[in-house]
Design a protein around this nucleic acid. Structure first.
Length: 826
RNA sequence: GCGGGCGUGGCGGAAUGGCAGACGCGCUGGACUUAGGAUCCAGUGGGUUAACUCCCGUGAAGGUUCAAGUCCUUUCGCCCGCACCA
């Protein structure tokens, strides 16, 4: 070894050798306990960014650490390769999405290899490959046969400028993410997955996910948005129609002074027909429809209501109340219709004040008396029912049940659990996605493509223009086909699937990536799943993670897998910031991983990104911090270089009967093993693990300085070997090189993780602190095993302590073994 | 509005209720150098002292405790998620 840390040469050397020897390729099964370590696969946008680098560095440490600990570790990588950017590139640059995508994959794969991440590349998958999407289609069919995939008319996001449908994720602040034009809603026939059928299980099983961050579970819980309440039927006065409302407050039924429908509610047509308000209402509905999503749902927007001229009958009081439509009522939630109780709902209160509806108090808080004429806000708290007929005097919580039971008896209402979660809209009017395997036939209707005909191949020769419908629709060779049911002419579905569908099952495919008989080999999936550790950005806290959980539950019900939850432990990494804000092209504060690797090497880049912050927190990028990590690795190199040849001749023998500096060095070594092991395995605190290793290097430098005759070669060897083993998951190249140079056979990455010797970390003497009234006044060196009584004795012999308490009265003395003694005086 | 998180040196960040500021960056001084943005050594929260010392200090204010960055209450600020959900 020479003194120069030539990271370029050695990183290249080891990447080539690892690949040649296939040390990261793992067999399907093993006697060792399995461990599935997974990082969220990237969209192949072209280049890795720092977020990727952080994600994969974290995962690689976990995978390497678990491997060294003796686990059989699955650590795969692939590409979430369908999606809009490829198509946009095609429109803009005329390059085919497939070519663009596979080029990007080649680039990014090379970058990942340069980072020295320990992936089993034999298991690589790309969701845009027919061998993969064939099974995405197959899974769609399974859902279709189960009745979990269906088609219905729905309002979708529409960008008038691009003349196309947008996914929810492509709507940013109410506008098109590409051209910023406000998005409007349009009615189109769309495919959905019935995720709402799983709402209860998705909610309840969150409790099983002990290894998930609380924050993510709460976000999912809120997204599912379960609420308990009642449906109440109001008969329309003079018509054979019923308006059903959903409410969480049936106890306030006696306070209803009007009803409000969403403008799009299907009943509105009938209610206004022939009324004198008809024209005005139609105009209003049209106006609301054309509003952008942002304006439509803004809480800032003024609440506007119009009377329909119709009236409804309160099912318990028989009272006639007016029916209105208003912009603030959402068709998609509940029944698209709410009852107005101004006294006990703030929105209703403001609405009633504006339009002069009566405010009727029906819940009276304890020790207070609400007066509608002087109320400044609705009272939404608990209380006792009043003005409510036979329910008067009942606490409102009981009233909720009592009123609903009464309605049930009358057949005019029922208990109802409601969810905020909506069914998952999976159709996209886009080309670069998985074709939905459905054929429409004039005779047979909607016919699924037979499994034996899969995959429905995505045609390659299509035009890319933003026409507002899938480019597939303009491709007759694709559209026109034969009905598999009757043999007559049929037309293919031209929508493709949401890419979230592709990413909802990829972690199963890794277990048997080249399987041709099914989406996966059941035995292999049963062996590997669930994923033991999943790592990725918190931006996927809801969509991807919820969809994957839904899929897993469906697959479980279909007996295709036997796990109910896909990811046992989840780590959501923080963002990479520069100057306090997220790195982004538009801000121009991007630091490219490529440049960092070229300048300092992969080991330095990885080390810095793990050292600069705990993984779940945001990380502030610092060029100087990178420099510091580079310096540290050079320091490790220069520590080992002059010793390498010497150490080759030192036998691996346990050092016994050590004293002085030798004993201390060994103690530090074993303490570091303990600290690093605990920091990685208990809490993923890589930053403190690395600082412990830095401290050990500092200690080794000091140890190296003592006269050679006083130094124990066995201790030196053990310490250096240990240092390399502990550092190996973080900086795999430099440690491998030094491992070889110091005379070891075989890759360092296939060595067992070191265990600490409890005896070695024993200390004879420790420093304890003497506090007087909680303030540190003295430090004493005492035997480590000194019992509390003796500590007390020892402390009271100390002249300095005696001086400080001489004219005070000792109230009590609290000895804490191994730590301190606190003397309370007065 | 609701939900969650975070406030510690000049900076990134450490601290099972028990020595606040580990480790790293930066900075100051020095050594070695023709030179260095290489490397090594020493110092580095604020105040006080000739020195030993002593006092103050984890956004703010209270509280619990022998002991609080850590637990409780109130409050301010920043970040994130959801947002007219009936």
């Amino acid at each position: 070894m020479n003194d120069n840390y030539d990271f370029r040469a050695l990183e290249e050397k080891w990447q080539a050798r690892w690949e040649k020897e296939g040390i990261y390729q793992i067999p399907d099964f093993s006697d060792r306990p399995k461990y599935y370590c997974l990082e969220m696969f990237p969209y192949p946008s072209g280049k890795l960014h720092m977020g990727h680098l952080r994600n994969y560095s974290i995962g690689d440490v976990v995978a390497r650490f678990k491997t060294m600990q003796g686990y059989h570790v699955l650590h795969p990588m692939g590409w979430d390769a369908f999606g809009l950017p490829a198509e946009n590139a095609a429109i803009k640059h005329g390059v085919h999405p497939a070519k663009w995508t596979f080029n990007n994959i080649d680039n990014m794969r090379a970058q990942l290899k340069q980072m020295g991440i320990s992936y089993d590349w034999n298991r690589e998958v790309a969701t845009c490959h027919p061998d993969y999407y064939r099974w995405t289609q197959w899974l769609f069919l399974q859902l279709f046969h189960k009745g979990l995939a269906y088609k219905k008319k729905a309002a979708v996001n529409w960008c008038p400028e691009c003349a196309t449908v947008l996914a929810n994720e492509q709507v940013k602040d109410g506008g098109c993410e590409r051209c910023k034009t406000p998005v409007i809603k349009r009615e189109l026939s769309q495919w959905f997955f019935k995720i709402t059928a799983y709402a209860e299980r998705l909610l309840n099983d969150l409790k099983l996910l002990e290894g998930w961050p609380e924050k993510v579970k709460i976000m999912q819980e809120n997204w599912i948005g379960r609420s308990e309440g009642a449906e109440i039927d109001f008969k329309v006065d003079g018509m054979d129609e019923t308006i059903t409302v959903y409410t969480t407050r049936p106890d306030t039924l006696f306070g209803v002074t009007y009803l409000v429908l969403a403008p799009e509610h299907p009943l509105v047509e009938k209610l206004i027909e022939g009324k004198r308000e008809e024209a005005e209402i139609r105009k209003f509905i049209q106006k609301v429809r054309n509003l952008s999503e942002l304006d439509r749902t803004s809480t800032e927007a003024e609440k506007i209501g119009l009377p329909t001229g119709a009236f409804c009958i309160n099912p318990l009081t028989g009272e006639k109340v007016p029916v209105l439509i208003a912009n603030y009522v959402l068709l998609e939630y509940g029944t698209g219709c709410v009852m107005g109780v101004p006294a006990h709902d703030q929105r209703d209160f403001e609405f009633a004040r504006k339009y002069n509806f009566p405010i009727r108090v029906v819940i009276q808080p304890a020790g207070d008396k609400l007066d509608p004429s002087t109320m400044e806000a609705a009272y939404e708290g608990e209380g006792v029912m009043v003005n409510s007929g036979k329910f008067d005097g009942l606490p409102n919580k009981e009233g909720m049940k009592a009123v609903t039971r009464e309605l049930e008896k009358l057949g005019k209402g029922r208990f109802r659990v409601n969810y905020r979660l909506r069914d998952w809209l999976i159709s996209r009017q886009r080309y670069w996605g998985v074709p939905i395997p459905i054929i429409y036939c004039d005779n047979c209707g909607t016919v699924p493509v037979p499994e034996s005909d899969l995959p429905v191949m995505l045609p390659m020769n299509v035009e890319f223009k933003p026409t507002g419908r899938s480019p597939l629709a303009d491709c007759p060779e694709f559209v026109n086909t034969v009905c598999p049911s009757c043999g007559g002419p049929g037309k293919r579905e031209t929508d493709t699937m949401d890419t979230f569908m592709c990413s909802s099952w990829y972690y199963y495919r890794y277990t048997s990536p080249r399987e041709t008989e099914g989406p996966w080999d059941k035995a292999k999936v049963d062996y590997w799943l669930p994923v033991d550790q999943y790592i990725g950005g918190v931006e996927h806290a809801i969509l991807h993670l919820l969809y994957s959980r839904f899929f897993t539950k469906v697959l479980y019900d279909l007996k295709l897998v036997n796990t109910q939850e896909p990811f046992t432990n989840l780590l959501t990494q923080g963002m990479v910031l520069k100057d306090g804000v997220k790195m982004s092209k538009s801000r121009g504060n991007v630091v490219s991983p490529e440049d960092i690797v070229a300048r300092y090497g992969a080991d330095t880049a990885r080390l810095f990104i793990l050292f600069a912050a705990p993984p779940d927190r945001d990380l502030e990028w610092s060029d100087q911090g990178v420099e510091g990590c580079f310096r540290f690795l050079k320091r490790v190199w220069r520590l080992a270089a002059p010793l390498a040849d010497f150490l080759k001749g030192v036998p691996l023998a346990p050092a016994a009967n050590l004293v002085g500096a030798n004993r201390e060095m060994r103690r530090i070594t074993h303490n570091t093993i303990k600290k690093v092991t605990e920091d990685i395995s208990n809490r993923f605190n890589f930053n403190t693990a690395i600082s412990a290793i830095m401290e050990m290097v500092n200690a080794l430098y000091q140890y190296k300085e003592i006269p050679e005759t006083d130094r124990s070669p066995a201790v030196l060897r053990e310490s250096l070997d240990t240092l390399l083993l502990l550092l190996a998951p973080f900086a795999p190249h430099i440690t491998e090189e030094i491992w070889e140079a110091t005379g070891h056979e075989g890759s360092i990455h296939q060595q067992p993780w070191p265990a600490y010797d409890p005896e070695a970390i024993q200390e004879d003497e420790i420093t304890i602190v003497v506090q007087i009234n909680g303030k540190v006044r003295e430090r004493l060196l005492v035997p480590a095993d000194l019992p509390p009584e003796k500590m007390q004795e020892r402390v009271l012999q100390e002249p300095r302590v005696l001086r400080l308490i001489q004219d005070k009265k000792i109230i009590k003395i609290i000895p804490v073994p191994g730590k301190l003694v606190n003397i309370v005086v007065k």
